[in-house]
Design a protein around this nucleic acid. Structure first.
Lengths: 183, 183
DNA sequence: CGAGCCATGTAAAGAGTTACATGATTGC
DNA sequence: GCAATCATGTAACTCTTTACATGGCTCG
């Protein structure tokens, strides 16, 4: 039960704490969720997750509730962990900054041929369509999920649907803009 | 002129190369742009940028074209640098993944009171409005900019305007959804 | 008994942030 | 001369990714 260091960044910690509110789970269990419904929101690697769970246990935010077969450790949220999670949810301002690989390329699209710029934007349109289709699949999975991310997870999903739609419309518009310059 | 290592990630490198297509510039000059028109797309710290310029020079993608007063080094893009930039723009698939601090919180909004969840969403709505206002300011700056990020930078800006609008509308919708559950 | 999944861990390197440190030049 | 701005650099730490490594259990 050492001191809890927390400065505002670092959300893998809170993602793990959050998932444990749905009940005790092992690192392996959590990893399935990170690769599943959380993949589009906060992906994490196995390596990172196991390390983080160790730190979380050391900090007293989770405890090893049970040790099972195959070295399995089942983690459970402590009162301190739940308090930290609530604190993060309510009091800590989310980071606004977002890096966008795509947008950075858009800035420099002037150095390639307009045809290539248009092709780039056409690919963004296709990406958006594809990702939206994937979200529709997730939509059905979530509905029939045992772990109840359904309630508020539905809000996150709707965000994704609106986001991909916006991206698709923008890509179509941007192609027209480039066509204007080219033509 | 050592070998260029490149595996698909890492875009600060390309941001720097891209900015140098508008003409030679010092680390300090580039930093102004990173803090300005690029701040919402690919922020970078002074520390990181100077380090990267050193590596870029070592790799032969840029050269020190001129050394001025106050230790100023003016960097210029080499042919190899421009080639790498074009390659990145046309051949390298942009990363799709995106971490969202906000969306992660949405997933776990069920553990706080519905009133707090609504307040959280109301803040997102305010954020979106505020950020859109900032983009409107940038819009006018870009129009009267000497460095010509204007042409395709305009496309990136429009993306931002559409994005913030989408976010605002989603936040309004989400508040209503929470109100339904609460009521 | 072996394939496949369950389950955890470490090591190394890349990418990003914050803080510290230094010095030159310009303009009032 | 001194404050502000120009200008570069280093050190330490955190977060993230990729690769490597190991072993247990179950079922056909």
């Amino acid at each position: 039960m050492s001191r809890v260091e927390y400065d505002g960044a670092m959300s893998l910690r809170h993602a793990a704490l959050g998932l444990l509110t749905f009940g005790p789970a092992s690192g392996y269990d959590l990893l399935q969720t990170f690769n599943g419904s959380l993949a589009n929101v906060w992906p994490a690697t196995q390596s990172q997750l196991y390390g983080e769970l160790g730190k979380l246990a050391e900090a007293g935010l989770v405890t090893v509730a049970e040790e099972g077969a195959r070295r399995r450790k089942e983690y459970a949220l402590t009162d301190a962990g739940l308090a930290e999670l609530r604190h993060w949810l309510v009091d800590v301002e989310p980071t606004v900054v977002r890096r966008s690989d795509v947008l950075l390329r858009v800035f420099f699209l002037g150095i390639v041929e307009p045809e290539q710029a248009e092709e780039f934007l056409r690919e963004r349109e296709r990406d958006a369509i594809e990702r939206q289709a994937e979200l529709r699949v997730t939509e059905k999975e979530i509905a029939s999920d045992t772990v109840d991310l359904a309630v508020y997870g539905r809000l996150a999903l709707e965000w994704g649907l609106r986001f991909t739609e916006m991206q698709r419309e923008w890509a179509v518009w941007a192609q027209q803009e480039v066509a204007k310059v080219r033509g």
